[in-house]
Design a protein around this nucleic acid. Structure first.
Lengths: 243, 243
DNA sequence: GCCTCCCGCTGCTCTGGATCAGTTCCGAAT
DNA sequence: ATTCGGAACTGATCCAGAGCAGCGGGAGGC
């Protein structure tokens, strides 16, 4: 896949129109190609020298484990996302990352990123923007768990995920392909797997959303966004915010 | 207050030894001094042209409101913290910020920050580090809400806050001054105020922690960290990580 | 062809925390 | 000195979601 059509380039381009120099610097990130099988722990909590990856294909999830063995999934990573960027900056790994599907990724050298900051300010801004966007996703997730009911929370979370998939051309408002199990969803939403199952069933029975056979289908987008209190204004913007 | 003893400088210095040029650039941030009274909404969700502040004195909180009027506090800001940095990068404000106490802050121009990235790479790295640290705080908060019981969650959250206060010289492992009400805590922890009250009472009765009269006291630090599953390794490091 | 494992699914019971409906306390304003 | 408003605190009841126990079905391995 050419750098020009990589999901990351696509994502960054919605924010800023990248120049040739930026693209060249970005291309240099993709030196070491790596593949991982489902279940592989790509990054371990506590790891020294944290690795950074750019996801080209497949899904991963970042999570933390509690002493009692419970797991909280903090975020899912989809094509175009960075893995371990925060850990690299903090020089300490505060979470683990696991491959959910077979994965294709580029392992990036932290030094390449810092170099990019020095010599390709436009690209640096774009990366910062992407990092901020990730943080905004986590914040929305926090609100989901803190203040929404199981149903709102599930609906809202899947809509958010759909919006992210759409941003890299892997989905639209009818739905998206989704390799997650109900267990993943439970660990992400702070619910039990049993309850996630019931919630998904009622959402389906109400004709709002179907989560089945590797696909999430938004059966009634407008009623769904209303139920979830989901802000659809992201659908309005077209073209880079910054030229 | 001289720039050298500002909470932000102090915080950044735990990470990287800043040079004269860095400090000069940092000093330029503090051009417009602003004061706010408790309850003032310094940043509004949806605001265009978001403002950026560096908190010098006082406490603020960033939060999101839900359609049904519920509020989720995402984070508290203490001296040395940035307000609205993420919004500035995203060029859209996805949360509000309210002053909790009387506040002294510097309003920073986004352009000054971007300039700093171009000409003071060490400082830029330090700011990036601070932003990553903020994100790590939000992630811990997410785990609190998603997977910990009310008691663990309350204890863990206050310990985390204590660690942050310690980092800017405003607390130690015996406790810290804290202007929050039980309502603030409830909105942050995703609990009802009633339940927060009960939890604080049992923590106090068990001789673990006292939340009273504007101060949080860690009555039994080691039992408390054990209950909360709180990682105390932050206490080990001394001196900048990066020289 | 059968076995096994994982995932989806379901009924029942139990409980952590919400909700409702107050009272008490304290500090600031008049 | 009294009022007033916000915060802390408490008891009683309710319910969303957890926990437990178990079933069915499909995909992969031998």
């Amino acid at each position: 896949m050419s750098i020009l059509e990589s999901p990351l380039t696509r994502k960054l381009s919605t924010f800023v129109a990248l120049g040739d120099g930026d693209l060249e610097t970005l291309a240099r990130f993709h030196r070491r190609r790596r593949s991982f099988l489902p279940g592989h722990e790509m990054i371990h909590e506590g790891q020294k020298e944290p690795s950074v990856f750019i996801l080209a294909k497949g899904w991963a999830c970042s999570y933390k484990l509690l002493p009692d063995g419970e797991r909280q999934i903090v975020d899912f990573q989809i094509p175009g996302d960075f893995l371990g960027l925060r850990s690299a900056l903090l020089r300490t790994t505060d979470h683990s990352v696991e491959a959910i599907t077979p994965i294709e990724a580029s392992e990036v050298l932290a030094s390449d990123i810092f170099e990019a900051f020095a010599r390709a300010p436009r690209l640096a801004t774009a990366i910062l923007w992407a990092a901020s966007r990730d943080e905004a996703v986590v914040v929305e997730h926090l609100v989901d768990i803190g203040r929404r009911t199981a149903e709102e929370r599930t609906a809202h979370f899947l809509l958010e995920l759909g919006a992210r998939m759409e941003l890299v051309g892997l989905g639209d408002r009818t739905g998206f392909d989704c390799p997650l199990t109900q267990y993943h969803l439970a660990d992400a939403l702070g619910l039990s797997a049993v309850h996630v199952n019931r919630v998904l069933r009622t959402l389906r029975d109400d004709g709002l959303l179907t989560f089945q056979k590797g696909r999430v289908t938004f059966d009634d987008f407008s009623r769904l966004t209303a139920l979830a209190g989901f802000d659809t204004s992201y659908l309005d913007q077209d073209g880079p915010l910054l030229r």
